[in-house]
Simulated scan of single mutants.
Amino acid sequence: MKKTFSALAVLSLFGLSQAVPLFEGEISAGYIKQKPSGWVQYKGDQVDLKDDLNIGDEDSYFFRAKLEHPVPVLPNVAFQYMKMDFSGTGRITRSFRYGNQVFTVGDTVNSSVKMDHYDITLFYNLPFVGLATAGILDVEFGLNVRVLDFKARVKSSTVDETATATIPVPMLYGSVEISPVSLFSIKAEGRGVAYNGHSYYDLNGELRIKPITIPLAVDFFIGLGYRYERFKIDDIDDISADIKIKQPYVTAGLLF
């Protein structure tokens, strides 16, 4: 049902952009290699993702949609979904307490960490920048709300403990895109917030190549990028964590 709704929403945006030429937007999807590190703590000890849980790198995907309109007062809008689900299996080399359970040296544990996130971004362009640079430079700023679906599970043959939380994270958003020629552009994008011992930073750089252009319709692009996220929380629903994710990726999509 969710996939059907998302597909209809994307098609609606595309149809609207064709009916009203002043609307612009983007639809894209990508493959991403996620490399996590850091630790998680649930009521007990800090547990290292690599050393204690043997959490490995994962291949994943993401989707983006964006719509810009000509009404100056109203913000533009963008949506993003990213799948982030890690797992690991191994024999632990030190005892630790996780939740209400104690895992002892020699236990073989199966672990998983889920951090799927959903973003909605309300943003404005700085039109005078585009005019002053003849369209070479595009600057955006606004507010991003990320809903993080967090789940960290540690399981052995005798004990099983899971920490879960749904965390809404308001973040400041900004991006700069430089398009020296029509064939390619370079885009830098950032989201971030820090308060009361919590922080979340999501930084992204992308080279976009636009080999196919259909006048008055769409541009096809492919992108090569790198994303860095650092997620730090201090005692939310008895969960603390400091997790970093390095993420090279490729993407493809349509600009209309």
Rank of each mutant, 00 (worst) to 15 (best):
Y200T: 01
I233D: 05
G223Q: 09
A134T: 04
Y226Q: 04
L122P: 06
K35C: 04
L122N: 08
A194M: 07
H198M: 05
L16R: 03
S157G: 04
V139G: 09
V193Q: 03
G223L: 06
A7C: 08
Q46G: 13
Y81R: 12
R153D: 14
E177L: 13
Q80T: 08
P21W: 08
Q34P: 01
G190M: 00
I243H: 03
L126K: 02
T251R: 09
N76T: 02
N110F: 01
E24C: 02
T251Y: 00
G192I: 04
L13A: 12
V145C: 07
L16H: 04
F63W: 09
K43E: 11
V47T: 13
D48F: 06
T213A: 08
K66E: 06
K83N: 15
D57N: 13
G90Y: 01
L74W: 13
T164W: 03
G253D: 06
A9C: 10
V109R: 01
I178T: 13
L53P: 02
D107W: 02
K2L: 15
V218T: 12
F14A: 15
G15A: 14
L143I: 10
D116R: 13
A134H: 09
V102C: 03
K2A: 15
V159L: 07
V40H: 01
D57E: 12
V105S: 03
W39N: 14
D85Y: 14
G190R: 03
E140L: 04
L131E: 13
N110Q: 12
T166C: 07
V113Y: 11
A29Q: 06
E161K: 09
S185K: 07
V47W: 07
V250Q: 01
H117A: 03
H198E: 03
G30Y: 01
R208H: 12
N204A: 04
T133Q: 11
D107P: 01
G130K: 12
K50M: 06
G197K: 14
I167R: 10
T93A: 08
T162K: 11
E206Q: 14
V109E: 04
V105C: 01
K33A: 05
A132G: 15
V71Y: 15
G205E: 10
G205F: 13
G25D: 02
V250R: 00
P72W: 12
D219C: 10
D57S: 05
P180F: 12
R91Q: 14
N100A: 14
F23C: 08
R64L: 06
I120E: 07
D48M: 11
A194G: 04
